[in-house]
Design a protein around this nucleic acid. Sequence first.
DNA 1: TTGTATGCGTTATCAA
DNA 2: TTGATAACGCATACAA
Lengths: 345, 345
Amino acid sequence: MIDMSSRPPTMKDVAAAAGVSLKTVSRHVNGATNIDPELSARIRDAIVSLGYRHNLAAASIRPGRSAKVIGLVISDLANPYWSVIARSVERVCSANGYLLMTVSSEEDAARHRLLVDRLIAQRVDGLIVVPPRQDTGGWAAPSASVVPLVAIDRPLQEGEATSDAETAVRADTILADNAGGAEAATRELVRQGARNVLFLGDSLELYTMRERLAGYRRALAPSDDDDRLVVTTAHTAAEAASVVGSLLGEGRVDAVFAANNRSSIGAIEAFTRAGERLPLIGFDDFESATLVRPAIAVVAQDVVRMGEAAAEAVLARIAGTAPEPAVTVLPTRLVLRGSERAASV
Amino acid sequence: MIDMSSRPPTMKDVAAAAGVSLKTVSRHVNGATNIDPELSARIRDAIVSLGYRHNLAAASIRPGRSAKVIGLVISDLANPYWSVIARSVERVCSANGYLLMTVSSEEDAARHRLLVDRLIAQRVDGLIVVPPRQDTGGWAAPSASVVPLVAIDRPLQEGEATSDAETAVRADTILADNAGGAEAATRELVRQGARNVLFLGDSLELYTMRERLAGYRRALAPSDDDDRLVVTTAHTAAEAASVVGSLLGEGRVDAVFAANNRSSIGAIEAFTRAGERLPLIGFDDFESATLVRPAIAVVAQDVVRMGEAAAEAVLARIAGTAPEPAVTVLPTRLVLRGSERAASV
DNA sequence: TTGTATGCGTTATCAA
DNA sequence: TTGATAACGCATACAA
């Protein structure tokens, strides 16, 4: 058993025990081939008997070396949407020898900034970031000047005043085709005969909500472009359920486009409670959506691909094998479970 | 705009620019109070104009200092069960100034060992680990001798041969009351009149499965203690659905205890397909379980509390304010949605 | 209150 | 092939 109370053994200790120099141990540990087999064996023995562990943190402070760690800032790891993205990022990072530090910003701009700074202080090699909802700006440019930065799910927005191209931060950006997906969903509801499609979503502070609303409007005739059928106050499933519940009796609405997960769930709850059901298409697939009867049609995002693309983008930029920062928009897919039809957007 | 191509500025650069010594900059950066306000201002200006960033990685190699990073090894971050635990761990760590490095072992013992070694090489301050399913052993003792180690969801098992107390690794362990929850669920099904309750679960290689099976057996009369109603091959929802589907017509089974998420989902799918439904209680709650009609009764684990307890345990051990390693068993809760009843186990 | 000098564990240079 | 020595960026005795 190795003694935990004393100072952990270093390369120097190994070198002394093996009767070789520090540099030779370093070579051995780093997998150099040009080492005398006998010395190599002595070093190996010394490492085992001392319980030596290579210290990557110490190695990383040398110029040209790094800890091979990527930082990921998402909204909330407990949300399946983000956790699947995180897993996907992790998979690519891990395959390339990188570890991942994941933090949840809770959509709080101040906390977001703190976390980004902390990750930079920790000297991550790259940063994948979901820009916070109410971005006060000013963090992206300094961060991107210090570490490769990739935006995912939403583009960077450098404050309202600096929206011109000159001051905008150029960073690789991975987005889903929110507008296209919303447009396809709305068109499908109309095709099925709906005349008054409700847009049920969260705050327009969210880039994705603005995009989905734009797609919804694009699908409707310009004359329908009013706000009477647009609800953007469904922050929770309960709120969504309450909205749908109060609209169900009136007959003003004959179909629902639920612009996010919680809105879909809330709408279904309201349907079940009222014993009345309207045509519904939701945005974002969710676990056990197939269990609900009738099955729920959704606009599915390729969340796995989003994570992969983001990870590949940082790694390419770290490797220096990347051209100008690019915006990647991944297609969404309309999944019509009820009618057994699927169409690509 | 700061130049990204050249070497990033160090404390020495700041000291030179501010016309003070290295030590004074170090004090300023570390928040020391006893600094001449004028020097402090000069340093602050220099930091801003140079774009200096504190290098925590470099600072962490000093004796007595650390990077304040915790390592978390789970099975798969994309699984909501683990991601909620990870989020919970992250919350506690973050509140105490620690970052989290999360990796997915994919239940692969070799990969698990690699990841643990990598995290130790990275010099994490503590390690929270889900022991892999087919643990070949031998990793825990060396790891625990080097860094505080906490097991979560399953206990450490140091190989089959070394199961005696002397060689067993002592580490803080956070478990759910799997047996108790399974027993309560099975008893409830029997109370509702079931005579032949099916145990539907995954491989008994999993500690949690063995425990849940033990609880199931505890609830039944000893004479019922045969394996004819025990299925441990439901690795996926589809397999579970197939098992249940083939049993539905036979009449040998009059209730189902689904020992995990996927089994529950598979059973419901089979029910829906066959148009016939048996009393069902599942283990592990899941998102939108409330959407399914009739609502699904489940044994709910306090996943959030599990993560918290694990994080608190590592932090306490890091701080040195912890007694002997302890095993914490958190209660599970029987949630009877159909009958609007809930009972604590 | 501030500065000087030394060391943390590792890798890189360069000479042997 | 191997080894002595100097960095890397930072923090801390200790001296001023």
